[in-house]
């Protein structure tokens, strides 16, 4: 098994657009955008690929902070950004194709938007049919 190192570069939200533009100009392909809960903050990771090596840009933002969309640079970002906006409730401004919260319609709004709930060891009570 070959393990390739994956580099993470921490950014401030203000630098995001500039760095993504640099990646685009250097010929990187947008692979994915993911979002994680990290304490009280959210952690967004933008992954790029060039020559089969992954590199990541990472920003940390407090909840309810709007971040700019990168879909003007990479159109492909619109699916991931809509998904993050729907699942985490992070407002993303200026998405190229903005579904305005209807991309993934869920029973409860922003299911990932709450901190992790671990029911330690307990099985959830019977919700029988």
């Amino acid at each position: 098994m070959i393990k390739k190192a994956q580099s993470f570069q921490a950014l401030s939200p203000a630098e995001l657009i500039q760095s993504v533009q640099t990646c685009h100009d250097e010929g990187y392909r947008l692979v994915q955008i993911s979002c994680t809960h990290d304490g009280d903050n959210y952690e967004l990771t933008y992954s790029f690929d060039r020559d089969l090596a992954l590199s990541h840009l990472r920003i940390r933002i407090p909840p309810e902070t709007a971040i700019p969309s990168i879909s003007r640079i990479y159109l492909a970002a619109f699916v991931y950004e809509n998904e993050i906006a729907d699942l985490f409730g992070i407002p993303i401004t200026g998405i190229a194709i903005d579904y305005k919260g209807t991309f993934i319609r869920t029973k409860i709004p922003h299911p990932f938007g709450s901190p992790q709930v671990v029911k330690a060891g307990s099985k959830t009570e019977e919700r029988d049919e």
Binding site: F103, R105, T106, Q116
Partner: peptide
């Protein structure tokens, strides 16, 4: 314009359980 969500289950959240 695609619209999805008919099959969304949300299984990524199960990892917490």
């Amino acid at each position: 314009v695609p619209s999805i969500g008919y099959v969304h289950r949300g299984l990524e959240k199960l990892v917490e359980k």
